[in-house]
Deep mutational scan, measured.
Amino acid sequence: RGITCLDHENEKVNMYCVSDDQLICALCKLVGRHRDHQVASLNDR
């Protein structure tokens, strides 16, 4: 089922925000508060 995003409840987390040490979803990176932050794919970890 996967872990859902805290900010976007219908989205699954699939990225890690290095700047905030937090799991995020694609919407967080595209339009959310993490858009200018350094992120890594969970597949890279």
Rank of each mutant, 00 (worst) to 15 (best):
D7C: 06
K29L: 04
V31Y: 08
L6K: 15
C5Q: 01
N14C: 06
D36S: 07
C25T: 01
T4S: 08
D36I: 03
H8T: 01
A26R: 12
D36H: 07
E9S: 10
I3D: 14
A26F: 04
S41Q: 13
A40Q: 14
R33K: 13
M15G: 13
V31L: 08
Q38W: 03
E11Y: 14
K12P: 14
D7R: 05
K29R: 13
N14L: 08
H37M: 01
L30D: 15
C28E: 00
R33D: 07
V13I: 14
D21W: 00
G2D: 14
Q22D: 06
Y16W: 10
L27Q: 15
N14Q: 14
Q38C: 07
E11P: 00
H37E: 04
D44N: 08
S19A: 14
S41H: 07
E9G: 11
D7A: 07
N43A: 14
H34T: 02
C17V: 02
C5P: 01
L30S: 15
L30M: 11
A40H: 04
S41P: 13
R35Q: 08
H37Y: 02
K12D: 11
Q38G: 06
H8K: 01
E11M: 06
T4P: 04
C25K: 00
N10W: 03
C28R: 00
D36M: 08
R35K: 12
A40G: 11
D20V: 00
R33H: 10
Q38R: 11
R1F: 14
L23M: 15
R45E: 15
N10A: 03
V39M: 07
R33F: 00
Q38I: 03
C25S: 00
C5R: 01
G2Y: 12
L42R: 09
G32K: 04
V18Q: 15
N14M: 02
E9D: 12
V39T: 13
I3H: 06
V18P: 11
R35A: 13
L30G: 14
S19W: 05
D7E: 12
Q22G: 07
H34G: 03
S41F: 03
Q38S: 03
I24A: 08
V31H: 14
D36V: 04
Q38V: 11
E9Y: 10
L30Q: 14
I3Q: 06
H8V: 00
A40M: 05
V18C: 12
H37K: 15
V18E: 14
N10K: 05
R45C: 12
Q38A: 08
H8N: 04
H37P: 01
A26V: 06
A26W: 11
K12T: 09
L30T: 13
D20W: 00
D36K: 06
R33C: 04
L42K: 10
L27P: 05
G2E: 14
K29T: 13
D20G: 01
N14R: 09
G2C: 02
K12R: 10
R35M: 11
D44P: 10
K29N: 15
L42P: 03
I3E: 12
